[in-house]
Amino acid sequence: MVAIKGGSSQPSFADLVAAVPQPIPEMVLAPRIPKLVDGEVFFQFTKEEIARSTKLCRFSVVLKFLKQRPSLDAVRSFIHSRWGLSSTPVVSFMWCPRNVFVRMMSEADFTKALSREVCEINGSFYRPFRWSPDFDEDAKPSRVPVWVYLPGLPPNFYQESFLNILMMLIGSFIRCDNPTRCATRTDGARLCVEVDAAKPPLSHFWIGAPGLPSSRKQEVIYETLPAYCNSCKMQGHNSQTCRGKSGQHGNGCKGTKDKQEKGQPVAVNGEGMKEKETEINRPVVSVENMQSSVKEQTGPESTTVDLCPLSASMGVIPICEEPVGMVETQKNNVLVINQVENGVEVVESEAV
């Protein structure tokens, strides 16, 4: 829904453009050849390239619903009317049917979404998580937003600069509530912190050197810290009370994925059938098939490889006129041999 400014009956052109999702900006990458280790093809990207690629989604959260997930239209409508964001976020499906990806446009909106005290949409409860490139949809991340209470903290420490320092060993400071921010309640500070639930919580800390008369021992009360199991990577229980190995406490994603990999349609809350036809029906290309296809195109006597005609059908970065060669390097008494065969870099290593 587009907000109407100035009481006019029709939204402006700028409002209409802002409400329509825009294409993501292109990112220029240097060409590289695929590599081969133990019969597996892989691609490598630098940390700088990965960091550049995450700029678009740096203000994104994942809503993992505990049971049934509302429709996307219901989620969008609820966010628009109840979250109080400054701009309209992009709400979309994820691979797991219970997960929803919400991409905000500003850090302020991201903070609001991550630190909401009541995590439910139309009666369906969820847990919010900060998205990152290594986010695993099957597991529940151990880093969760938690509301922390510091009873009796003097009001002169209510400024965010102090709270950021005091929360350094507990987690990442997100925000404090309005009574703390305005100092209208001075019996203690209440703030939202992203805590690693897999680690033992810090019960107290000292302001000033311990034992001195001018120092203060500050208690830390966690209001919403969930239990976390390091064995199955799930919330709600710990390793001592875990009933089995990973998979028994799943959130419903694995069974859905098995159906999708077999080409079976999956129903998601009456929104129709989702089919991964593009990925499922795509023919599987092995390394042997790729090499034989390359030989047919280059000929048995050629010393160069042209993968450009295969790039569209196999998803391989086009590499043209790459000579066959071998480079040997020795690192930590291990001989590493990099050999380019048919446009694929083969990495072998052996002890020396």
Rank of each mutant, 00 (worst) to 15 (best):
D258V: 09
S77R: 12
V220F: 04
G208P: 13
L225Q: 03
T46H: 06
V344N: 01
V100T: 13
A51S: 10
N342V: 00
V268C: 05
H204D: 09
T186D: 03
A19V: 09
R127F: 08
P11Y: 05
F42A: 02
C182Q: 13
R82F: 04
V220H: 09
D138I: 11
Q248R: 06
K140D: 13
S81D: 14
S106V: 02
Q44H: 05
E345L: 15
S8V: 06
E223C: 03
Q159Y: 13
Q44V: 07
H204W: 13
H249M: 01
Y126W: 00
Q330Y: 09
G123F: 06
T186I: 15
A312M: 11
H80E: 14
P89G: 02
E26C: 10
N289L: 14
K140C: 04
E348I: 02
V334A: 08
M273V: 15
M94I: 00
G270P: 03
N122T: 04
S81E: 12
Q22S: 13
I121R: 00
G247D: 03
F162D: 07
T329Q: 14
T298W: 07
S81Q: 06
A74W: 01
A139I: 01
K64L: 01
A227V: 01
V285N: 03
V316C: 09
V284Q: 06
N178I: 10
W131D: 05
V327L: 09
L307V: 11
H237M: 05
M234C: 03
Q240Y: 08
W95V: 01
V294L: 15
F129L: 04
E322G: 06
G244C: 07
N178F: 07
G343L: 04
C96E: 05
A197S: 15
S293V: 01
